[in-house]
Design a protein around this nucleic acid. Structure first.
Lengths: 215, 215
DNA sequence: CCACTATCGATAGCCATACTATCTAGGTGC
DNA sequence: GCACCTAGATAGTATGGCTATCGATAGTGG
């Protein structure tokens, strides 16, 4: 298909497709002449993936490109692909509070997890703990074990899905997509579960007459 | 304390504090004269909260302002505060695939959750499902029940924390902070659990020689 | 074979967001 | 008194993510 058809099929404007091509996130079509290239279904899928990374996971163009490169790199062990995906997710820099890291390490130790100190998830979790504390909401820390338990189960399911995939390209793709989009899936499900739990616990809840905002 | 001291205490530049004041996210200090105002510890905490919303949850200034307004609105039932927080989180607009919503509804029905069709989490989850499918990674859908179970447990713990809070201001604050920052806490824990699960299942894993990127 | 439309590749422009800097008229504190 | 700070207003900047235009070319219908 031609670029205009690719645009129509994917819903992404031609100018934006060209931009993604320039940024190296999308492979060029097979050139049939100097001014004509042929795009395939694979390009449609790729655009869908790019949009998912950007819209859903909130990745920057630069991060998305890295993750896509990891997916594409056939020689890369998928474990590395997983690490790249994990690092591409927005991670805060400053944690400031050593006590927070300590608490996270305790949780990790209690679950007998084997986690490197550089794991970006560790810094993120520590930052949240640190903020809970700084905000005087230590009560929220009581939930952390439930969160950790839930994370463990989800991670196990994720890994099972990866192991079930056949071949390294499928594995790498599965792990990357699962890592990046899984957070959003959980977020959506949690928000629904909140509404339900809230409804059964408290009278007036989760109204529907509030306008959606942001995007 | 003066604005420069507030800046020092919070780590936020004076110019940025002024910007937040202008945007109505931070209450003005008590003016001791035409050119002097006094800020309190509450201002430091507020700045911390603003930074957490922006850095960790990735909220825009506009979204953060709305959520903060919900926290501040004493007359607002905290159930509404929860809904506002939920809606402030980035939510995709287009879901395109009706089959995806159907699948989500099935999951919801299986768990006997009571969720309105307008719940933004529903659109988000549907979008992820839709993308899993469009990308030909239907295998990832096998994990959705585990995710839902995990979300249910986490939500129950969240609500328990809210119920334990004393007074409506504390409840509203707890629910908002928990909603907005809880996703990140889970994300961090999941990424650690991934590393652990990956290490026990596969040989080479989660390397530490890859540079962190993005922010 | 000739107008016409589409494409490629390159470059420049645009717009929103989140700050950051400057300026003026005033206060503070030693 | 005098160096230094502050409030409040306004203007400027940097970045990210597109979007628009252009010239050269080329395939397409008649």
């Amino acid at each position: 298909m031609r670029i205009s058809e690719l645009s129509a099929a994917s819903g992404v404007p031609v100018a934006t497709i060209k931009y993604y091509l320039r940024e190296g996130m999308l492979a060029a079509g097979e050139k049939s002449s100097a001014t004509q290239a042929d795009y395939s279904e694979a390009h449609v899928a790729r655009l869908r993936l790019i949009r998912a990374f950007i819209d859903i996971a909130g990745l920057s163009i630069a991060s998305a490109r890295e993750v896509l490169a990891a997916v594409d790199d056939e020689g890369l062990h998928f474990g590395y692909a997983a690490a790249i995906a994990s690092r591409a997710l927005p991670t805060p820099s400053a944690s400031t509070d050593p006590g927070a890291e300590e608490l996270i390490d305790e949780v990790v130790a209690a679950r007998r997890w084997c986690v490197s100190a550089e794991n970006p998830g560790r810094a993120l979790a520590a930052r949240v703990v640190s903020d809970y504390r700084a905000l005087g909401r230590d009560d929220l820390l009581a939930t952390i074990d439930v969160y950790a338990e839930a994370a463990e189960r989800v991670a196990a399911a994720d890994l099972q899905a990866v192991a079930a995939a056949s071949g390294r390209p499928a594995m790498a793709e599965t792990v990357v997509i699962g890592t990046v989009l899984g957070d959003s899936l959980f977020s959506g499900l949690r928000r629904m579960a909140h509404e339900d739990a809230s409804a059964s616990r408290f009278p007036i809840t989760a109204p529907t007459d509030i306008q959606p905002k942001d995007a």
